[in-house]
Simulated assay, not measured.
Amino acid sequence: MVTLDYRTTERVMVLNLPGQAQGTFRLRLPASPTRSGQFGPWHLADGIVPANGSAVTSEIHDAFAIRYRVL
C-alpha cells in the first residue's frame, strides 16, 4: 500500500523485480481520488527497461500490467 500525500494527477509507479525488467506505470487517478471498493481495469506498462539491456519486445511489454484501487 502506498499513501498519496500530494494532490497531483502526475503519479508514476516503478516496479523493480530482481533479475527481470523494470516497469514504469502512470497511475491514472484524479488529483483527489475517492475510495474505490473495486480494482480498476488492467493497464499495460507505460515504459520498460529490460534487465539484460536488450530491446523491449511486445512479448516483454505484454507481460507487465497492473490493476489498482484507492483505499
Rank of each mutant, 00 (worst) to 15 (best):
P33K: 03
G37D: 10
A45E: 04
L71G: 07
R69M: 10
V14N: 08
I66Y: 06
D5E: 11
I66E: 00
M13Q: 06
Q22G: 01
G23W: 01
G40I: 06
A65G: 11
R67L: 04
E59R: 07
T3S: 11
F64L: 15
V56I: 15
L44I: 05
N52A: 14
I48T: 05
N16H: 13
R67A: 09
L15V: 15
R69V: 07
R7T: 09
L27H: 05
M13T: 05
Q20E: 14
S32N: 12
H61S: 15
V14R: 10
G23F: 00
R69Q: 13
I60Q: 04
A51G: 06
G47W: 00
N16D: 12
S54M: 02
Q20N: 12
V2Y: 12
S32Y: 08
P33I: 01
Q38T: 14
G53M: 02
G23Q: 00
P18N: 13
G47Q: 04
V49D: 11
L4I: 13
R35H: 07
W42G: 05
I66H: 04
S54Y: 02
T24K: 04
M1C: 05
F39N: 07
G37W: 05
T57K: 07
R26P: 02
G53T: 03
F64Q: 03
P41Q: 14
M13P: 01
P18F: 05
G19C: 11
G37S: 12
P50E: 14
D5G: 14
L44M: 12
W42S: 14
W42Y: 11
E10I: 03
V49M: 12
Q20P: 01
D46Q: 11
T24R: 04
V56E: 01
P33W: 01
P50F: 06
R69E: 10
I48G: 02
G37Q: 08
R67Y: 02
S58F: 10
L27Q: 05
D62A: 15
L44A: 15
M13L: 15
I66S: 00
P18I: 03
G19D: 09
A31L: 07
T9N: 11
T8Q: 07
V14C: 04
R28V: 09
M1Q: 09
R67T: 10
L27Y: 03
A55N: 13
D46Y: 01
S36Q: 14
S58M: 12
R67W: 00
A45L: 08
M1K: 07
L15I: 11
V56W: 06
A21K: 00
L29K: 06
G19T: 12
M1S: 10
G37K: 04
L17W: 07
N52Q: 12
L71V: 09
W42C: 04
L44H: 13
V2K: 08
Y68A: 01
V12K: 08
P41G: 12
H61C: 05
A55R: 15
V14T: 14
V49N: 11
R26D: 00
R7I: 03
D62K: 14
G47D: 11
T9W: 00
R69A: 09
F64Y: 15
G23E: 01
G53E: 05
S36C: 05
P33D: 03
A63Y: 04
H43R: 14
P18W: 03
H43F: 12
Q38V: 11
V49R: 13
L27K: 06
P41Y: 06
G40N: 07
G53Y: 00
A55V: 15
F64V: 08
